[in-house]
Structure formats: C-alpha cells, structure tokens
Design a binder for these strands. Structure first.
Length: 483
RNA sequence: GGCCUGUUGGUGAAACGGUUAACACAUUGCCCUCUCAAGGCAACAUUCACGGGUUCGAAUCCCGUACAGGUCACCA
C-alpha cells in the first residue's frame, strides 16, 4: 500500500470556520493514523473572493491547533507549488484541460451567462432538472477556430455522455450510483484562465498523490463528475471521506456569515485549542470506547473513518464549555497559572496573591472569560443591598448577619498570624460558641468582604487573600451599612 | 422541481436481528460543604420520524410516506 497522503485545501476567504477546522482535523487524523503525510494546499482560484490575511489565519490556526502539515506553501515539499494561483501560472491546469479537449472529454464553450440563465429558467417549472444543455458541445472544429481567432471569451467545459451510470464508493456513505444524464457539465477552466475548484482539485489531488480525499458532504453530489474526470485522464480514483456538516441548529450550518463562532472567536473567549479540537472531533465521530477526553495525539490512534456519522451534528457550546473546564482542571499548576495570570492581572491589583486567586478559581472557571466576573470584588467590594444577607441555606437575614459580623470583627482583629488556618478556626470557634453552623457565620462575612452571594472560595479564603487590614476595613464598612 | 443523503431523548451519541436502548453534556433531586463550584450518587427515551412488510424475534433488513440537509455557479 502506498503512503497515505491527505490534504486540507481551504480557500483564503476569511476566518476559519469550525466545520472547516474539523475537516482539517479529520484529514490530519487519517494521515497520521497511518503515518502518512498531511498536506496544506491553498485554493485561491477565485480571485474575487480573496481576503487579505486569510492565508495567515489558516497558518495560525493550524499552528495553534498543532495540526502540523508536512507539505505546504510555507514549509515546501516535493509536490509544489502548493498555492493554486501559482500552479496556474505554471500552466498546469490549462495543459490538462486541453488534454481533455483533445480526448473528447471537454469542449470549448462560448455561451454567455444570460443565455445559460435563460435556458435554466425555462427548464425549471416543467419538472425535470435544471441541467444546462450546452449548444457549444456540437460546435464544428472550424467554428471553434474562428471564434478563438476572434478572441471571443470562452471557458472549457467538461463533456459528459448522457448515458449509463457512474458509481463511486465513499468511506462514510457507502456506494452511490447516479445516472450520467443527470450530471451537469461543469466548467473546468474559467474565462479568466483560472481553473474552477472542481477541476483544480482533481488535477492537484492527482499530481500531489493524495490517496484520501477528506472533505465536506456538500461535495458528495459532484463526486461522480470528478470521477469521470479521473477516468478521462486514466488516473486512479482516491478514497473519498465525506464528512457530515456541523450545524448551528436543526436547519442551518454553522457559518461565519451569521457571526457564528469561528475558531478564533472561541479562542478569544478563552477556549483552549486542545479543548476545541477534542470537542469538534466528537461532532460527527465517536470512539469505540466510553471516553471523551482525547488529545490530538491520542485521536490519531483511535480515530476510525468507519465511525464517522452520516448526519449533521449540532454544535453545542455548553458541552464545549464543560470540556474546556475539564482541560483547565487537568492542567498542571504551573501551566494553569501561566494561562490565568494575565487574565487575573487585568482585573486585580497586583498587591494580591495571584497564585492564591488562581488556585481558588481552578474548579470554577470553565472559560477564561469567566475570570472577570469571578474576581471583580477583589479591588473593591461590589455594591450590594443588605437584602443579600437573606439566605435560606445559611439561615441568615440582615439582622442575624449583623450580629455575626459584630462577633467576627473583633475576633479577626485579634488574630496575630493571618493565614487560612487561623482565620478558619477563629470563625469556626465563634460559630461553635454561639451554637451556629459555620455557614451562618461565614456567609455574612463572605458577603461583607465581597458584596456577592457567590464567590470563588469562601469567607476564609477571601479574607486570607485580602489580608488582615483590608478584611477589617471591609467588615467595618459593611457594618456601617446597617445604620 | 430532478438527483443524492440523512432521521435514536433538549444536545453529542452507542447499539453492527435477541440488552432493562450504553455513555457524555444539559436539566432536576440528594450527599459533601464556610457561598458558588468541583466531586459523589440518583432521576430523566415503555421507545428509536411515521406507516406497512420480512422474521420466533427489528432501532437494527425491505418498501412507502413525512420531514430535514446537500446539489443542480465562470464559489469553494
């Protein structure tokens, strides 16, 4: 068996969609599972849709995801160039298109767009299909010559004999057969000399010796036409792996146009690339065991094309959040702190112990953007109403809370060595002395220190981080509120 | 409209003719607990879009219907 080679072939038209990224992931996994090569090819044949900087986004994304390509425009390789516009300049596509014309599998077409529109419009209502019946198909040789000499605009269009059937096998969808008379004769070479995606894809996949074509399901319908091209050239047909779409909801695919989350949006919100990758791997594919947390490295071992689903999967941000939390919790302390420190620094005065804060956040943060809301009381307690002291679980109301604070203040003030243990035992013994549950005493302290009914860590932890002076100050201030 | 593909709980999904229809997220409840989390435990589809058929037996095979998605671009 020859070496497996897969490719990711995006067009540089903007940001990286999640669906796109998943396709890249699968292509990568297929290659790496068999120690094959993963190739990046830039498909920039539509000069109108190019977006500046889009290629860099592609590089950045693959890099951030650690989906390293073995060949590509930036890293080179033996099958270059890896950018289609450059390949076009080398005349590759026109050469091959002309070969098809010569062999009768393609023809010059001089039709105007409005003629095509008109014909399709008429074809519509009466049923049947919208297939374009190209009159240029039967143009005599000298007529073609004449038009060409006249510098008439032309395209090169695939020629399909409307007889018989074409069958292909998809690794996910199985065998699919279609009637050739239902196949559209697609344009191979555009009038600007660029190849269409359809054509460039076939030529490049062959020239680059791609063995497994991993792409979105939207290409399933045109695959028979590609195969006809392969056959016309006498080339081997690659294995096809069509992936079901990633959906935004029951009806719509995830798309950048609607402002749906792109990879970079998610990262900006504080999702980890590893978690994103792990999550999207599970959209449309499932492992053969009861496990969900996998690194890309681990995925290359367990990934199996046969277990890719056929129907679209809805992207569920809630589950991604959960998974991101798992990744955060699983990090070792140092890398975790390195990740959180800058986020904490945005909102918290450096006089406080960032490490202690980060530790308090560890089991609570799901995504980095949660941090702000969790640490917003350190610099200054939040504004609150004494109604906040009403708490069912703690069995407190403003009245009892006031008493608790009055008990706690002098006791805390007497602590000489300010640390977690001393603070806790101080508060706990007050509670015991007054036959209160810990929570009844500590909840008011927490509120007084933070102005919040839910905080990362309890009263003790907050007091410890704030330090004795600040704690006393805040307690005094809290008591004033009752007057 | 033609053609192609799909349809298991709110979501991701397992099951490859015989199970009480896994598991995970979410949700709810309980436990733990100085709040909130995290963690632990439990509940959550008498049913696999619907209708027929094959079979001793079907979510799994066949047919039909409905619904959904894709495709029919000088976009990829």
């Amino acid at each position: 068996m020859s070496k497996v080679r897969t490719r990711f072939a995006p067009s540089p038209t903007g940001y990286m969609h999640i669906g796109n990224l998943r396709t890249a992931l699968y292509a990568y996994l297929v290659a790496k599972k068999y120690n094959g090569d993963f190739i990046l090819r830039i498909e920039d044949t539509d000069q109108n849709r190019l977006v500046e900087g889009a290629t860099d986004i592609i590089y950045d994304t693959l890099k951030a995801c650690d989906l390293q390509h073995d060949e590509g425009p930036d890293v080179g390789g033996d099958y270059g160039p890896y950018v289609q516009s450059e390949r076009m300049k080398a005349g590759i596509y026109k050469d091959y298109a002309l070969r098809l014309v010569k062999s009768g599998n393609a023809h010059y077409c001089f039709c105007k767009e409005e003629d095509i529109e008109a014909q399709k419009k008429n074809a519509g209502p009466d049923g049947d299909s919208f297939l374009y019946k190209d009159p240029c198909k039967n143009l005599a040789e000298d007529e073609i010559r004449k038009k060409l000499d006249n510098n008439e605009e032309y395209v090169i269009r695939q020629t399909i004999v409307p007889e018989g059937t074409t069958t292909f096998t998809d690794e996910v969808y199985g065998d699919i057969t279609v009637n050739n008379d239902e196949l559209d004769e697609m344009i191979l070479l555009k009038s600007d000399g660029f190849p269409t995606y359809n054509f460039a894809n076939v030529v490049d996949d062959h020239l680059m010796e791609i063995t497994d074509v991993v792409r979105g399901k939207e290409y399933l319908s045109s695959t028979p036409k590609y195969n006809l091209l392969y056959e016309a050239f006498g080339w081997d047909i690659p294995r096809y792996i069509h992936c079901p779409p990633v959906m935004k909801n029951e009806h719509e695919k995830l798309s950048k146009r609607n402002g749906d989350a792109s990879f970079q949006d998610l990262v900006a919100k504080g999702y980890l690339p590893e978690a994103i990758l792990n999550y999207i791997a599970l959209l449309g594919w499932s492992p053969n065991e009861e496990r969900e947390i996998y690194s890309v490295e681990e995925l290359t071992k367990v990934f199996d094309v046969k277990r890719i689903n056929k129907s679209g999967a809805i992207f569920d941000i809630e589950k991604l959040k959960w998974m991101n939390g798992v990744y955060l919790r699983n990090m070792d302390d140092d890398s975790y702190f390195k990740l959180l420190e800058p986020e904490i620094a945005k909102y918290v005065d450096p006089k406080y112990d960032y490490r202690a804060i980060a530790k308090a956040l560890k089991d609570r943060v799901m995504i980095l953007s949660d941090v702000e809301e969790m640490v917003d009381f350190f610099n200054e307690p939040k504004d609150y109403s004494i109604d906040l002291y009403n708490n069912k679980k703690a069995k407190t109301d403003p009245e009892t809370a006031r008493k608790c604070l009055e008990l706690a203040l002098p006791a805390l003030n007497n602590i000489e060595e300010w640390n977690n243990d001393t603070i806790f035992s101080c508060l706990a013994s007050i509670a015991a002395d007054n036959s209160m549950k810990n929570i009844t005493l500590m909840y008011p302290v927490q509120v007084a220190l933070s102005g919040k009914d839910r905080t990362p860590g309890g009263a003790t932890m907050i007091a410890q981080i704030l330090g004795k002076d600040e704690t006393i100050k805040r307690l005094e201030k809290a008591l004033e509120k009752f007057e």
